[in-house]
Computed example of a mutant assay.
Amino acid sequence: MKIFKNIAGIVVILLGGLWMLQGANIISGMAMSDNREWLVIGALLVIFGGALLYFNNRPTPIPPVH
């Protein structure tokens, strides 16, 4: 399950990056080009994908010894 979440996080980051580039009109010639809405949606996807990777790979706390 951890591998699936890592792959999903990477795919979401790449998709968000693509949408950001299209929204900023760096990649032109598509319906989403030069549309600031897709720039914002892409940025939110990049943040979500980064959070998914962070929470999936953070170290587990060591339980206290009694």
Rank of each mutant, 00 (worst) to 15 (best):
I27E: 00
N57R: 01
Q22D: 08
L45W: 13
W38Q: 00
L39G: 12
L44M: 15
G49M: 02
G42N: 09
G29E: 02
L45I: 00
T60S: 13
M30L: 13
G50V: 07
H66Y: 09
E37C: 01
L52I: 03
L15K: 03
N25Y: 00
G50E: 05
I27T: 04
L39P: 04
P61E: 13
A8N: 07
G17R: 02
S33K: 01
I7G: 06
L53R: 01
G49E: 01
P59V: 11
R58N: 08
I26A: 13
L15P: 06
L52N: 12
L14Q: 04
N6G: 09
I41K: 08
V12S: 07
L18P: 05
G17F: 11
M1Q: 06
G49L: 01
I47W: 04
G17T: 11
V12P: 00
G9F: 06
L39I: 00
I7S: 11
S33Q: 02
V11N: 07
F48V: 05
P64H: 09
M1V: 00
I7Q: 07
G23F: 05
V40N: 05
A43N: 04
P59L: 11
P63D: 09
V40I: 15
R36E: 11
M1N: 07
M20L: 08
L18D: 06
I13W: 07
D34C: 01
I47L: 15
S28E: 13
G42I: 07
I10F: 14
S28M: 03
P64L: 13
M20G: 08
V46D: 02
F55D: 01
A43H: 00
G49Q: 00
G50Y: 08
K5D: 07
V12G: 02
W19I: 04
L44V: 03
N35D: 15
V11D: 09
P63K: 12
G29N: 01
V65S: 13
A31Q: 11
G23P: 06
L52P: 03
I7V: 15
N35P: 01
G49F: 03
V40Q: 05
P59A: 14
N6S: 13
L44C: 14
Q22C: 07
K2D: 10
N57K: 00
L39V: 02
I27W: 08
P63F: 04
W19P: 01
R58K: 15
K2F: 06
N56E: 14
S28H: 04
M1W: 01
G9K: 05
M32D: 03
V40K: 01
M1D: 10
L53Q: 09
I3Q: 13
H66R: 09
L14P: 06
A8Y: 03
F55Q: 06
F55Y: 13
I7M: 13
K5H: 08
Y54S: 09
